[in-house]
Amino acid sequence: MTRYARLLWVQLRASMLLAMQYRADFVLDGVVELFWASTTLLPFFVVFAARPVIGGWGRDEALVVVGCFIVLQGVLEGAVNPSLHGVVERVRNGTLDFVLLKPKDAQFLVSTARFSPWKCMNVVTGVVVFAVAFRGLGRPPSAAGVGIAAGMFACAIVVLYSVTTLVVSASFFVVRVDNLSFLFTAVFDAARWPATVFRGALRFVFTFVIPFAMMTTWPAEALLGGVDVRSMLLSAALAIGFAAVSRTVWLRALRSYASASS
């Protein structure tokens, strides 16, 4: 275990070194993050300027969901995506073989291979959004609410990682589709809205198929003080379920890669 921790640090350090190399990136990444954050917020404020309450959500309450979204987006784009996009690249040019030759778990190796350290700016932005939202509401979140939200976030990150792993595993079978890895990131944008605003089929999809509800809506509800045991349990169940499925599919994908490659 400690050996894996050391390995993680080595890879993290390499990513930081890489990120430092490009001076223009240093400034630009900050600007890009700010821009993306504001594009997240502009349509939001426009919609809530037209209506004070949408689907049972007031503006400041929905803003807590946006805060959760921004933080999770940072995790997705900073820690999950860079490595897993790297796998797609490696499958295409055949260098995945080098990874498979190493005496460590391949999934661990590939999913810690690259980080984008600048994306931690998202956490700062998210905290600012939380601050604004709770000032608007006039009350801070309860300690219990923060604890539950943190637990749900952990589950959400597990699911994010698992879904991305599933997408990457798919790339083993359809090697030629090289933008497949961006699909989830694009669809994830929908998670910035409270899942209960959607109706009909979309709501079902966003709760169970691509479970955005447990990623941003439920933690936000917990922060807002609505402690719901059912959603806590469902959160944990989804995390375990997605993790198990994605691990199985990953191992199967690896087997098919090993037998198909020359």
């Binding site: 209506r51 689907g55 809205w193 605003v197 959607f198 109706r199 979309l202």
Partner: peptide, 11 residues
Amino acid sequence: FVMLAIFSAAA
């Protein structure tokens, strides 16, 4: 489509 769903809910 997502924006359509949001705006429809608002309207």
